[in-house]
Design a protein around this nucleic acid. Structure first.
Lengths: 197, 197
DNA sequence: ACCTGAACACCGTTCAAGT
DNA sequence: ACCTGAACACCGTTCAAGT
């Protein structure tokens, strides 16, 4: 019962867990169907029983990432001890920190190259759920009179662009910064007050 | 003299040109040393005479991209018919448009995954030159009393993050927008006036 | 159902050999 | 100098065959 060669239906989750491990250890490129299978102790082609191809497997890993991100953002949004703009700022920080702390995983989530199966409804939904947290936060800020009355969707795009941009620049080493949290704080504060004198 | 099998020293530039073509036709992943050599009509290993490895070749292509981007940005900065903040906004637009119009090339420039040789001094310099255009623009805006007096470097990081973020979201299809130029304009304008009521 | 090995058509890269 | 083919150690994926 122990020295079994079969993965009774838990192969799928073993694949996801191990792929995530490999991603954080040495990047997406190190995840190879063959190496993955070997590490789990299964034949090279076994993974194809659970995922149509490598892209589908990586997409599933990316979806898990978005689910964690959504949870992180939702926790900030629901913190009723802070006013709406403080929470909006904190959400930005939390986003950037998530990305930096899960750099390789985040890269998989947002980069197109490695994953074709991107247009999957499940993937799109996972990504949209995260963004919805931001939109809801902005709407609350507007309802309570903190935030200007431009369309929440467009404001959301702006904040998303800024935090996402900062995150990717940091992750790819194109921007070096003493303190990530401070930098994110500076950005959201300046965003609040404006750049013009 | 014509039916030659030798590429008398123009192989290097042929490689760069053809690689750029392949990138814009079908993405970075389609650029394979073997396919590249075949398309030029040269043996599989010939490219190694000019580039240490595939990463070095792609890095050279990325550097060319940054040079074009720098030129684009410099042209906007030097347009003396507009006030500093107008030029700053226009530079943001120009940046995003460059990225969208050269999507696959831009991806190569900013994504880490495909290229290891990233830490090359030449590459870092090319990337820094582009960013310097932005910093210089901000400093001029401050000197002429348009822009708040925070460190130009940090303001630069913010604007860079926002435009870069918008660009990558658009390129990767995570954000769909009616009009890219309008969207960029909205963002820089809102950035100028602030988000708070 | 789930797993297997063999096989196919690809990679990047090295290296001894050619002109 | 510059180019070549053969070879090595990898890929993703398919497929007939096993339990």
């Amino acid at each position: 019962m122990e020295g079994k060669t079969y993965h009774h239906g838990d192969l799928r989750s073993a694949l996801l867990t191990t792929a995530t491990e490999m991603i954080s250890e040495s990047g997406v490129d190190s995840v190879t169907i063959r190496a993955l299978a070997k590490r789990i102790g299964v034949s090279r082609t076994a993974p194809y029983r659970h995922f149509e191809d490598k892209g589908a497997l990586l997409t599933a890993v990316a979806i898990e990432g978005y689910e964690r991100l959504t949870t992180t953002m939702a926790n900030v949004r629901q913190d009723q001890t802070l006013d709406p703009f403080e929470r909006l700022s904190k959400m930005g920080e939390a986003y950037v920190l998530f990305a930096v702390e899960n750099a390789t995983h985040y890269r998989l989530m947002v980069e197109n190259s490695s994953v074709q199966s991107r247009s999957t409804p499940a993937f799109r939904e996972a990504a949209l759920n995260a963004r919805q947290e931001l939109i809801d936060m902005i709407k609350e800020g507007q309802e309570k009179g903190f935030v200007i009355d431009a369309p929440a969707q467009e404001i959301g795009n702006m904040l998303w662009s800024m935090t996402h941009g900062l995150a990717t620049l940091l992750i790819n080493g194109q921007l070096r910064v003493k303190n990530v949290e401070e930098t994110a704080k500076f950005m959201t504060a300046t965003m609040g007050n404006g750049l013009l004198k």
